[in-house]
Design a protein around this nucleic acid. Sequence first.
RNA 1: GGGCCGGUAGCUCAGGUGGUAGAGCACCGGACUUUUAAUCCGGGUGUCGAAGGUUCGAGUCCUUCCCGGCUCACCA
Length: 496
Amino acid sequence: MSGPKAMGETSEIVRQRIEKLEKLKQEGKKIYQCDFSPQERLVEIREKYGGLESGAATGFMARVAGRVMAFREHGKAIFAEITDGSDTLQLYVNFKKVGAEQFAEFQDIDVGDWLGVEGEVFKTRRGELSIDVQMFILLSKALRPLPEKYHGLRDKETRYRQRYVDLIVNPEVREVFLVRNRVIRAIREFLEARGFLEVETPMLHAIPGGATARPFRTHHNALDIDLYLRIAPELYLKRLIVGGFDKIYELNRNFRNEGMSTRHNPEFTMLELYQAFANYQDLMDLTQELLGYVVEQVKGERRIVYRGQEIDFSGDWERISMIEAIQKYAHIQIHLDLNGEVLRKIASEHKVVPEEGASKGETINQIFEQTVASQLIAPTFILDYPKDISPLARTHAQDERLTERFELFIGGEEIANAFSELIDPIEQRRRFEEQLEARGEAEDRLIDEDFLRALEYGMPPTGGEGIGIDRLIMVLTDSPSIRDVIMFPHLRPEGN
RNA sequence: GGGCCGGUAGCUCAGGUGGUAGAGCACCGGACUUUUAAUCCGGGUGUCGAAGGUUCGAGUCCUUCCCGGCUCACCA
C-alpha cells in the first residue's frame, strides 16, 4: 500500500508504474543512469535506409535512443514506436532474438519510457523501416501516462501549463517553435549582414519609459529602492546612438502590466532597431526587405496563408496616411482641421466611443483602430500619426500637428511601430511635460532626466523601429493566439 | 475587471424533466512470431473543479469561490 507517490497522485496507473520501478530497483537494475550514447538520430536512419525494399535487411547495426510512443504486442513479437525529436522509428522485438529474460523485461516497458536500443536496421514485409532489437536498456522511467494516442491532448489549459506534454504528443506545436527559432535567426542574419550591432540594455529600470504601458514593480534589497521591469528598451538604445553607435538592435523581452488576451502576454519579445541618419521612409524600405527576407527564409516563398487569407510579402507595400486610410477604408470623411467636438460626434456616429477627455489625436486614433485596422490584411504602412499620441517621434516636416511615424499592419494585426526619432532635447522635454499633464497624477510617472541629458549632448538624426516578434510569428505560423507561439504563456498559478 | 461558454476515469467525451456514475482509447490479466489507432477474450481504475445550501435523495437545482477558453475594456 505505502510507497513513494508521484507528486501526491494516486491514480492506478501511476501506482502500477511505481511498483514496476521498485521491482527493477530490487533486481539491482540501474535506472535513471547515463551510460548509453546513441550513435544515430532516428532521422539519419530514415534518410539512409528509407528507400530500402520491403522485407530487406541492411546488416547495419544502429545504436539509437528515444521515447516509447506506442506498443503493438503480438505474442512472441512486440512492435514499438520510439521518437527522439528528429523522427519516429519502429522497434521490432523478437522473443528468440533477445531471449526470454530481455523479452520479459520489454513487456514491462511503458509508453513514455526512454530506451536505448541496439539492433539491425531492416524493413518489414509491410514496408515499415524498423530496428530488429538485439539489446535495449531502460534510460528513464515514465511514472505518468501520456495522453491518448488518437485524440491526443486537446485541453488548452493543460497544453499551456504542461507544455512538455503538449510537445511530446502534438508534433505541430514543435513545428511552431522551430519556425519561431528560424524567424529570430533570420532577423539576426539580416541585421548583422547590414552592419547592425546587437546590444543588451537594462531590464530593470528606475524610471519606466519608451512606451505608455503600466510597468511591473520590483524591489532591489541592497539598494532599498523600487525598480521596474522595462516596458521598452527605447530610451537606452537612443542613449547608445548618442554614444556613437550608428546601427544597433536589441531582440529581447519587454514586460507590461496590462490585461491578457489572444494578442497580449505580460512578457513578450520585441525587436527594436535604430539607424542613425535614417528617417521613417528609410525604415519602411528596411522593414519591407527585412520581413521579405524572413518570410522567404522560413516559408521558402514570400506568400503565406493567415486565417484563410493569402498574404503576399513581395513588391512594395501600401503606404497611406492615417487620415487617408480612415477615408479610404472606413469611408469616414475626417481631416485635421475639424475641432475636437465635431470629431467626437463623427466617432460616435460610427459606434466609436472615445474615452473621457480624449484628445483630438486619441479620438482619431480610436476611429482608425476600430474601423480600419482589422481590414489591413496585406502588409500596409499607416503613416503620419497625430503628435499627442507620439511623444517620442519627430514633428512632421509638412504638418506640425503630425509626426513622422508609421505602424505596419499585417493580417489586421499591428506588427511594427517606427518613427523618425525626436532628437531635439528642448522639444522632447516639452512633450514629456505635456504628456504628464494630460495623463494626470494617477500615473506614477517621472521624466527620465538622464535620457534628456543624453539628448542634450546631441543625438544624430535617427530612425527607430519596434517589431512585435510574437505577433509576427503568429502571422507566420497561422496561430490564433499569442499563447500558441510562447513556450510557457502566462497563466494564473495552479491552486490546490 | 465586464459578458458568454466550459471543468465528469490517465486522455477524448456522453450523462432529457433530481433516483445505485458511462463509452472509446490508455491501463491490468489471458491468447497470438512482421504489426500500423494490430486483433480476440475478461476487468471500470472516479474527491463529477472546491465549499456551502435546497431535498428522503444532487454530476444534475441554488449561492459563493477557484481555474480555463472566447470576447469587450486597458495595451503592443
